[in-house]
Nucleic acid binder design. Structure first.
Lengths: 224, 224
DNA sequence: GCAACGACATACTAGGCGGTATGTAATGGG
DNA sequence: CCCATTACATACCGCCTAGTATGTCGTTGC
């Protein structure tokens, strides 16, 4: 469930021979390549340090094309959040938001993340968390978008916990809002710190700790 | 317990009339002002986006002086970590590392942070966490320094938990390493996310959730 | 088939950045 | 009192950056 990396996006647009005559035009594909390469560059370097020239080179697209599709670097960043980051976050947490038993679903995700945590994630951290930390205080457009993603995520987990409390799979004496805040904080905090330690052990410890915490949310007497 | 902000550091070095004759020289003070203003600028903008000119202006120091005291922007950044960030982190967590009853000490810190969380923290987040997220993947010098701080912090809490397990103030069936990872992840994760939401409620929810978690670490039968 | 619009490509500009070269004044040991 | 060294101050440089101006070629409606 890692963010996919378009290593060689220039399948149609050659980076070396740009002005060839008779090349087919595929504006949608060009746009998508730009978004994907921009996402990768932003993930590696952060938004502000992301170089348009680097994005151009990795995507094999020229500056004129970029500014045809996106009005500015900021607009490109917004589009990356809207069209790449948001769907990615939503896909990751969808099983939890839909599950009847949130605890089981969250445990599955914990183990999945601990198992297939990619080098990318260990090296560069969570793209969503990175953008929050870098851009939220600086730019209103980023803040509003990231805030919305975070809000939906938070409310989704709260809803899941409440549903679990209603159907008896979650203890009734816990505060859904607090539980959600804890889960999200651990999720984002642990990847950031694992990035600092550059070693998966811390992340694994946090995931196992989160598993224990999730288990403690089950009602004392399961069913009878 | 917030990071202090030296708003007007130019008490001796005037920013407007720099070349006055007969000014006293206080290299240690100059250096300290540079460090403090650099810390503030880095806290606000991140290290890479931190402008030397901005640091120079806010501190009332000239570029010549800066490059006399620090060999490069990177060296200045390292010094900020060594001489400002590290002592600040250590002072914040010292009570927990020294306490006989870790849970009580941690609860006190939770409430203290929830009470006097500063606007600075809500706006710009935790300086330590910000630096980790920004610089750890990019620069070995930063990574090693931040890694060391995190390591000491982590090990300190692990030690505190084990001490608590030895003297009976912490349940013996929990894994100290996992508990420490959870606490640190929540601490750093929650401020980062609160920064995104720009509202203290999320942070408060996380802190209350952490309090509940800490309470759950107490042994079932207190003493008699 | 032609015109008009969309989709690029190339070359250029202005500004901010970290860093440096060089000058000069204060300071402290002999 | 002198002189070397420290502690600055000023002016400048080259680089990289986002952004723009302008030209040109595919594509499509009529």
């Amino acid at each position: 469930m890692k963010a996919s990396t378009a290593k060689q996006a220039s399948s149609l647009h050659s980076a070396k021979s740009p002005a060839k005559a008779g090349v087919r035009r595929q504006p949608d594909l060009t746009r998508q390549q730009l978004l994907q390469c921009a996402f990768d560059e932003i993930h590696r370097s952060g938004f502000r340090a992301a170089s348009l020239d680097a994005i151009l080179e990795s995507s094999g697209v020229t500056k004129g094309a970029l500014y045809h599709h996106f009005g500015s670097k900021t607009a490109l960043g917004y589009a990356v959040v809207d069209e790449i980051v948001r769907p990615w976050v939503e896909a990751l947490w969808k099983p939890i938001l839909e599950a009847d038993n949130v605890i089981d679903a969250a445990l599955r995700l914990c183990r999945e993340l601990a198992r297939e945590r990619s080098e990318q994630a260990l090296l560069y951290g969570c793209p969503f968390n990175n953008l929050i930390n870098e851009m939220s205080p600086l730019d209103l457009g980023f803040r509003e978008r990231l805030q919305q993603i975070l809000h939906d995520w938070h409310e989704g987990i709260i809803g899941g916990v409440r549903r679990g409390q209603a159907n008896g799979s979650v203890r009734s004496d816990v505060d859904a809002e607090q539980v959600s805040a804890i889960i999200i904080s651990i999720a984002e905090g642990s990847v950031g710190l694992a990035k600092a330690k550059q070693s998966p052990e811390f992340f694994d410890a946090a995931m196992r700790g989160l598993e224990d915490y999730l288990e403690s949310l089950r009602p004392p007497q399961p069913l009878g």
